[in-house]
Design a protein around this nucleic acid. Structure first.
Lengths: 223, 223
DNA sequence: GAGTGGTCTAGACCACGAG
DNA sequence: TCGTGGTCTAGACCACTCA
């Protein structure tokens, strides 16, 4: 026997995925839905929490619950988001000094001069992803370019976690919706770190792609 | 003002991380904790749900709530988990025919002969990760080797999601704890798919590492 | 001020695990 | 059988949004 909240979530989910409830639509209020499904409001709210964690609805305090726009799934590959047709990025530039985890990440001394680019990517009207990009001040371009010159190697560390409250509100996602957290460190051919990027990508709208070329010898061992 | 459940979760979290509550310990029962914190049982359970989603505790129906063993964080890199010192893997081998999403994934005709290796990795006593590895029958080894010969290229598609109920129970994690889901497709130098691996890695115990080497010409454009 | 979602209470009843 | 966690009820009260 499936629990009440799952039964309700299943019903609403099918209405959303079949298009019976279209994107942007406001759902009936929680008391109304509770009456309709003949459950108490906590139970109904539990059902909505399931849909929220799946990224299907967006809860806005004082306004209502809304069907989320099903944005096209983007791919993070080669350090960029693709396809990037209708993406626009807003960037805030800040000068600061190295501290905390930035010191080992960029392999710079404490209080070294850095430039931070704080980027928010929008897909249409909706915020899609966040990036904090750190560059040593002497290498920092006046404007951030996605194609950085002088990079010979990059390392991407990928993990999944729940968003911080700030990330959740900036991206307008549930704090129960996991994000891909990618730390990308790029070095030049001398081994100097020329850029560190901290990326936050909502799990329902992005996946990451990595290609590896293998070199094998006659014995089938990696070289 | 921080909500009650967050305050309680913060208190229990600090007790766990400082070692005041050691791994494997059973927490007091939920009614006892509710009395201690002077809250109702639903509120106390909400607090525990936060810790569960962080992977700090494990709830076992009919037995109690237990502090989870803080396993060393493993890294998935080059298609393998490292360090693999105390990992052991149990494998179940099944013969089957291609259907559904396996057909485009392995680029084989419908009902093509395949071998599935269903792997569960254990770190000490605790299950760590799951893998479903598919190989065309004519290439399938009698025993699965982590070093596959004849692979010239691999592509890893990484996403984050909540585990299925089966995955959550096999890995003994909360269904609210996100997992890294990696689909790794390996091809030989003719372009034939020789292996497809579907990996499920708990987000609190694993991250994934990818290195990229860039080739740049004099103009700083990628080549 | 009216309507919305957010949090919390104080229970009831069911399902699971172990003796 | 007993103690555990799992689900649900029927409210109360607070915080936010908008007219």
């Amino acid at each position: 026997m499936r629990s009440l909240r799952h039964t309700i979530a299943d019903d609403l989910r099918s209405q959303i995925t079949t298009g019976e409830l279209t994107a942007g639509t406001r759902l009936p209020s929680e008391p109304q839905l509770a009456t309709h499904y003949k459950v108490s409001t906590p139970t109904l709210r539990n059902a909505l929490a399931l849909l929220q964690a799946e990224g299907l609805i967006e809860k806005i305090h004082g306004k209502g619950n809304f069907v989320r726009h099903p944005l096209r799934r983007l791919t993070y590959t080669g350090g960029r988001l693709t396809p990037d047709g209708d993406l626009h990025v807003t960037i805030r530039t800040t000068n600061l000094r190295a501290r905390g985890h930035l010191i080992p990440l960029l392999k710079v001394p404490s209080r070294a001069l850095l430039t931070e680019f704080f980027c928010v990517t929008h897909q249409g009207e909706s915020p899609h992803s966040l990036a904090r990009i750190y560059v040593p001040r002497d290498l920092a371009p006046a404007e951030l370019h996605w194609h950085r010159s002088g990079v010979s190697q990059s390392r991407d560390r990928v993990s999944a976690r729940l968003p911080t409250p700030e990330e959740a509100s900036t991206l307008r996602i549930s704090s129960a919706l996991a994000v891909l957290s990618i730390t990308r460190v790029s070095t030049d051919n001398t081994g100097r770190v020329v850029e560190a990027a901290l990326l936050v990508l909502p799990s329902d709208r992005t996946d990451a792609l990595f290609d590896t070329h293998h070199v094998t010898n006659e014995k089938g061992q990696e070289g």
